[in-house]
Simulated assay, not measured.
Amino acid sequence: MARASKGFLGRLLRGVLLLVLVFGLIGPVMVTTIYRFVPPPVTWLMIQRVFEGKGFDRRWRSLDDMSPKLVRAVIAAEDAKFCDHNGFDFDAMEKAFESNAKGRKLRGGSTISQQTAKNVFLWPGRSYVRKGLEAYFTVLIEVIWGKPRIMEVYLNSVEWGPGVYGAEAAARKNFGVGADQLTPAQAARLAAILPSPLKWKAARPGPYVKRRSGKITRAAGTINREGMAACVLS
């Protein structure tokens, strides 16, 4: 009886370890590899917004068919070191930690790679478990996708307004043009509202968004002159 019990426990343990291996390690690698070539479907956030009555508008567009002005504006606004880091900007993370520890307005230190991993694979919210998974998926997409694909998926998945996802839907919603026809000012406005897309407006910006978009326009010029988007734009 004792030997049979030990045998059962051994098989159970091996089964659990196999499930952990498949779903915890192999599964994410396989899904990430598939998304290297196939547009990721709806995200958890998109589903949540639908249930909140926000609607759904997303139109996939390849990175080559988007305006380089938007790419440079988003890099300037969200992650100036996008082409230099391997998924994590530790200097920005340290500054964010210090800012938050002093009780200032909550500041994030996430890179575009981290935001993409969170948007595509994970659920909204803050927890150590989710942050750990975010780091894991960030490493995976940096290794498997590379910078151009990360930028392409980011620009097609990020929330840009109530029920609006991706650059194409955002450009048409706000300015009535495709993502390939955005002017520098329009691109800067779209980049400016990314931190709070449900609060700020790109088409009818308030004073803060106008100031922020002006800074982004100037920073995007620096990104262009210094080749800081070379990993994405040929």
Rank of each mutant, 00 (worst) to 15 (best):
G27Q: 14
Y165S: 02
P162V: 15
A171T: 02
L9D: 14
Q181D: 04
E226S: 10
W123D: 12
D65P: 03
G24H: 05
N224S: 14
V177I: 06
L182C: 02
V120S: 05
S62V: 11
G87V: 04
W60L: 05
P197W: 07
G103I: 14
P68H: 07
T111R: 02
G221T: 08
E226H: 12
L70E: 02
M228V: 05
D89P: 13
T222G: 08
A188D: 07
P124I: 10
V74M: 01
S99C: 05
A171Q: 01
K118W: 06
T111P: 07
T33N: 08
K118N: 03
L17T: 10
A187M: 05
L106C: 08
L133H: 04
G132R: 12
R11L: 14
L140H: 01
K105F: 11
N174R: 00
P39A: 11
L25K: 05
V42C: 05
L155A: 09
V153A: 08
A170T: 07
K54T: 13
F82M: 01
A203R: 11
W44Q: 05
K199C: 05
A220D: 02
G132P: 09
V209M: 06
A2Q: 15
G163H: 05
F175N: 01
L45H: 02
W200M: 14
P39E: 11
V120N: 04
M228W: 13
S127N: 12
S113M: 09
L198I: 14
A2H: 13
G53R: 12
R225G: 06
C231P: 08
V158P: 01
I141G: 05
L190E: 00
S157H: 09
S157L: 08
H85Y: 07
K81R: 13
V38L: 11
I193G: 06
T217V: 06
V42Q: 13
L18W: 12
T217N: 06
R225C: 02
R218S: 13
I223C: 08
A170E: 00
A191S: 09
K6E: 15
Q114Y: 10
V71Q: 01
D57E: 15
